[in-house]
């Protein structure tokens, strides 16, 4: 009997996984349809851009600024122990942040702040039957609710990633000058940044920007019951969103490694 219960539990887990994958794929298809048909309320994209972009700007800048300084100090320390030549620090630092850390860390922060926000907005709508009311009014909830968030998230994740690179590099340069006395002309060096670094970083930012609202929207739409269900949906959105960011990072970094001879 224990064996049967275990098999049933595994089977139900697998079926649940398939159902989730199908639900997310349907959400992606529905959102894409919404983009093509422009089937969303006027002004909603701009409102969402403000919510996702402007309201995350300070949060991202402060976090990335500190991260940039810490990373420069740590890596400078290591280089000093090995070679003592800090001249390639800025160029390598910039390359690393453009193709890896700026998009990924920005997205991880957006997955918590924006993902939780989207799930916390859509979850109560699901629980209080507002989404049913939208469907009854002849509106496709995915187009109405997810599509504007998707467009806004893609645009603003990209923009915030650019800001993240600028802030991190500037803060890193400041740390290199004040801690190691490295001349800013030496640190601010973009000679190691190639086109594929920009392409890889851009692809990651766009993919992260797409994944966060889709996953958060899906979690919100799965909310059941009352406030407990909404809380659970919000937690799931943050966990699943962060996990998706890391998976996407692995996927794109793998592609970069295979096609461009190693990103890192």
């Amino acid at each position: 009997m224990i064996g049967q219960a275990r098999i049933e539990s595994i089977g139900s887990g697998i079926l649940g996984g398939f159902a989730t994958a199908r639900g997310i794929l349907k959400l992606i298809a529905g959102s894409a349809r919404g983009v093509l048909r422009r089937d969303y309320p006027k002004g909603e994209v701009v409102r969402q851009m403000y919510t996702i972009g402007n309201k995350s700007f300070v949060f991202i800048c402060i976090t990335m600024g500190f991260l940039g300084m810490v990373m420069v100090m740590q890596s400078g320390e290591q280089i000093n122990r090995i070679t003592g030549d800090l001249s390639p620090l800025g160029a390598q630092f910039l390359r690393l942040f453009i193709q890896e850390f700026a998009p990924t860390i920005t997205a991880l922060m957006l997955a918590t702040r924006v993902g939780a926000g989207i799930a916390a907005e859509i979850g109560p709508m699901q629980v209080s039957e507002q989404i049913d009311a939208l469907r009854l009014s002849g509106i496709t909830p995915v187009s109405y609710l997810i599509t504007p968030r998707l467009i806004a998230s893609v645009c603003m994740t990209y923009v915030l990633t650019v800001f993240a690179v600028v802030v991190t590099f500037s803060a890193g340069g400041l740390a290199a000058w004040s801690v190691f006395g490295l001349n800013p002309h030496v640190f601010f060096d973009s000679s190691q940044v190639h086109t594929y670094d920009l392409v890889l970083g851009s692809c990651k930012a766009i993919a992260y920007g797409s994944a966060i609202p889709i996953i958060a929207g899906y979690c919100g739409m799965q909310a059941r019951g009352g406030s407990e269900g909404v809380g659970s949906a919000t937690t799931n959105a943050v966990i699943a969103g962060s996990f998706a960011v890391l998976q996407i990072d692995f996927f794109f970094s793998g592609i970069g490694f295979v096609f461009f001879g190693g990103g890192l």
């Binding site: 709508m125 629980v127 049913d132 009311a133």
Partner: peptide
């Protein structure tokens, strides 16, 4: 369903007012 719903009005148990 879209065609049918055009002719239907519904009051939901939880009001379902758009907040």
């Amino acid at each position: 369903l879209m065609d049918v719903r055009e002719e239907v009005g519904m009051l939901f148990q939880n009001y379902a007012l758009f907040d």
